[in-house]
Design a binder for these strands. Structure first.
Lengths: 214, 214
DNA sequence: TAATTGTCAGATGTCGACATTAGAGTGTTT
DNA sequence: AAACACTCTAATGTCGACATCTGACAATTA
C-alpha cells in the first residue's frame, strides 16, 4: 500500500478551494495570509504556497505588494473560460470518436443511465456534479492527449465547481440537466462528428450564459 | 511614467527561464534552491516562489519532498502540447476570421513582408522568433478571447522558446520558415476558414515532429 | 557476493522575525 | 470644502534558522 504524506501547502489549497466553493470566501474578497495562518495554526509559508497554486489555477488573483483576492469573474471571463473548455473538449472528442469501440459506447450508455436515475431522485444539482464529471470524462475516454483533457476540464471546473458553485447548482432542473446530456450522447452513439462538436460548444455556451443571467 | 519595481520572485523566474533557454539548465536537471540562492545572494524564499511559478508554467516538474527538475519532455509531451496550441489557435482564428477588415489583412501582409525580409539576411532562426511571435499574434488579432490567446501561445512557447529553444533554431532554414508562414497567410487572405484551420494544425504538427526527430 | 542496515551530507518544508509598503484615518492648509 | 501632508496599522516580501526527509555511501550480515 502506498500511503501519501501530504504537504501542508496542498492541504491548505484544498481547504481554500472548499471555502471558495461554499461561499465562505466570495468573489473579490481579499485573502489575507496572517488570518488564514492564525486560523489554521501554521505559519505563513505554506499558506503563501497554496495561494500561489490557486493563483495559477485561476481561483485567486494577485497584485504584487497589494495582496491576493478571490477571483472576481466578469461576464466575459465566464464566457471565455467555457469557450476554451468547449473548444478543447470538442476537439478531443471529435478527434478520437472514430476509434470508439462497442464497449466505449456501452460505457457512455451506462453513465447516462446512472445520470438519469440520479436525476429522478434529486431536488437540485448537487448530486449531479459527479455524474457530470463522469459524463465528460467518458466522452474523452479515447482522447490520449492527457494535457488537453486536463486543460479542458480545468477551464470549466474552475467556474462551475468553485467560483460559481452555488449558482451552478440552480442552473437546471435535474431532469433538464439529464436531458441535455442524453441529447449529446445520442449523437455520439451515431458518431456524427460535426454535430457532436457543435452540440458541445452549445452546451457550454448555454451554461455560461445561464450563470451570467443569475 | 509608471515604473514598476519588480519583486525578487519574478526576476528570479526570468533568470531561470533564460538559463533553461540557453541550456545552462538542461532537461531533467535538478534545480536546487540553496545553490541558486547562493549564486544570486538572496534567500530561498523568492527562489521557491519562482520555481513554483515555473512549475505551473510547465518548465519545471516538482515532486514533493524530492525537489524540482527542469521538465523532461517525452515525445508525446511535445506532440500533445503543440496539438493543444494548434487546436486553440485554429479555433481562435477560424472563429474570428470572418470579422477581419482590409486593415487587418494589411497588417498580416506587413508582418509576412517583414518576415520575408528577415529571412533573406538570417543564417539561423534566432532572429525569426520575434517574427514568428508576431505572425501568430496577428492571426489572433480579432480573437477577443484573451484567455484562449494566452493559453494557445503558452502551450507552444513553453517548448519552442524555452525547453527546446536550441533545437528549434535548427528546425528550418530561414527561407523555409518564411515560406511556411506565407503559405498560411495566403489562405487567410482568402478567408478560407476550413483550410486555415487544417493548415495551422499541420504547421504545428510538423514543428513537433521535427523537434522529436532531432 | 548480494542483500540489509546504519550513517551522514544535503535538500526540502516549515517556522518566526523584520523591513518595507499600501490604505485608512487624522489633521493641516488654502 | 477640497487638496495635501502626516500618522498608524496591518499586510506583504524577504530573511535566516530548524526539523524532517531523501539518497548515497559505508558497514554489517547472511
Amino acid at each position: 500500500m502506498l500511503l501519501k504524506k501530504e504537504t501542508y501547502s496542498s492541504q491548505v489549497a484544498q481547504i481554500i478551494r472548499r471555502m471558495i466553493r461554499d461561499g465562505e470566501l466570495s468573489q473579490g474578497f481579499p485573502v489575507k495570509e496572517p488570518q488564514l495562518a492564525a486560523r489554521l495554526s501554521i505559519s505563513r509559508a505554506p499558506i503563501r504556497e497554496a495561494l500561489q497554486e490557486l493563483t495559477y489555477e485561476g481561483l485567486v488573483t494577485s497584485e504584487p505588494q497589494k495582496g491576493k483576492r478571490v477571483r472576481l469573474l466578469t461576464d466575459k471571463d465566464i464566457l471565455d473560460s467555457y469557450a476554451v473548455g468547449a473548444i478543447l473538449e470538442a476537439a478531443g472528442v471529435t478527434d478520437s470518436l472514430a476509434e470508439w469501440t462497442a464497449e466505449d459506447m456501452a460505457r457512455l450508455h451506462a453513465v447516462v443511465a446512472d445520470m438519469r436515475q440520479a436525476s429522478a431522485n434529486a431536488t437540485d444539482l448537487s448530486s449531479m456534479m459527479q455524474h457530470d464529471d463522469c459524463f465528460h470524462s467518458t466522452l474523452l475516454q479515447r482522447c490520449n492527449n492527457h494535457r488537453l483533457v486536463e486543460m479542458a476540464r480545468r477551464s470549466c471546473v474552475t467556474i462551475s465547481k468553485f467560483l460559481c458553485y452555488k449558482k451552478w447548482l440552480t442552473l437546471f432542473s435535474p431532469k433538464g440537466f439529464y436531458e441535455r446530456h442524453a441529447e449529446i450522447a445520442e449523437v455520439v452513439y451515431q458518431k456524427n462528428i460535426p454535430i457532436v462538436g457543435k452540440m458541445l460548444r452549445d452546451h457550454y455556451r448555454e451554461i455560461g450564459e445561464r450563470i451570467i443571467a443569475k
